[in-house]
Simulated scan of single mutants.
Amino acid sequence: MNRPFLPLLLLAAVLATAPAAAGKFDCRAPEAALETAGELPAVAAAKRAGTPLRVTIVGSASTGGAGTSAPGKSYAAKLAAALARRLGIPVTVEAHGRRGWGSEAMVEEMPDIVAADEPQLVIWQTGTVDAVREVAPEQFGAALLKGAEALKRARVDLLLMDMQFSPIGARLIDFGPYLDYMNWVAAGTASPIFHRHAVMRAWTEEDRFGAPGRAKADQQAYADHVHACIAELLARVIDDVQAATPAR
């Protein structure tokens, strides 16, 4: 199989397993999948001071809402409102998503993105492209560590987000080593991680998804609901971590 086309195949696989009633999609996730360590001191400081929070998301195609009915339906587009409700402060979100954007390329562009956006928090969604391209896991881990340490030196909070899950994707690609390196970097840099892979795997194992072969409109409706749920769960994780971060 031609590897460059695998991201499109994985996205199609996720969207093809739409629930029978997308409008009633259940956002609940196992508590274990939402647990994470790490700290978010800049977010906590903004919450305590009641000042606006600026968030930048750097990611691949799903960050831009690939598969949804409109760009405004992406988790990135919905995160500002979800996080503002949680924190009780104004939140703005800038999203930088690109199909085929690997971690090493992201690290190269991260300084310019951070300089332009001036965020207090960067959400770094990555892993799928590297796994599809069979980038050596240790090379992937080194890129993650380099990027994480650079953000820490700049006093910018970091939250990592791992890849999506689909049954077909799990059969085609071994995501395990990449997930391991993401967890290793998160632990080593005191950065929380949003376990999107585990959340979506739990949804699949609980049989919340219906049979494949649904119409495009239904697939998009499903994607819209998944992105809305990811935004809500992501906001919860950020709020939980900042609340547990000691004042400095």
Rank of each mutant, 00 (worst) to 15 (best):
R99M: 15
V43L: 11
A77H: 03
A81W: 05
M200I: 06
A115K: 12
A170E: 14
Y222W: 15
A198G: 09
P212D: 02
P52T: 07
K216Q: 00
A12R: 11
Y75W: 09
E94N: 15
A37P: 01
A105G: 15
M161V: 04
A29C: 07
L233W: 07
Y222T: 09
K146M: 13
L83I: 02
E104D: 15
D174G: 07
T245F: 03
A217C: 00
E104W: 09
H197G: 00
D174W: 04
R133S: 12
R236I: 00
V237H: 00
P4Q: 13
A45T: 14
S191E: 12
G169P: 12
A21K: 12
V132Q: 12
T36Q: 00
N2A: 14
R48D: 11
A21F: 15
P137R: 02
R214M: 07
K73D: 05
A81M: 04
R54I: 06
W124Y: 01
Q120W: 09
A29S: 09
F25W: 15
Y75E: 00
K47S: 11
V226L: 13
A228P: 09
L160E: 00
G102C: 10
A80M: 03
Y181V: 04
M1D: 05
R153I: 01
S60A: 14
E118H: 15
L151Y: 06
A115D: 15
T68I: 03
E108L: 13
L87F: 05
A190Y: 02
F209E: 11
A142N: 12
A84V: 04
A77V: 01
V226Q: 07
G213W: 06
L11H: 07
G23A: 05
E134T: 14
G213Q: 04
F140G: 11
D218E: 01
A46E: 10
A223L: 14
L40S: 05
N2C: 13
N183D: 08
T92K: 12
D218T: 00
A76T: 01
K24P: 00
R28H: 08
G50S: 10
L9E: 08
Y181W: 13
P192W: 05
R236S: 04
R86M: 03
A105E: 15
L83V: 02
P111L: 04
I89D: 05
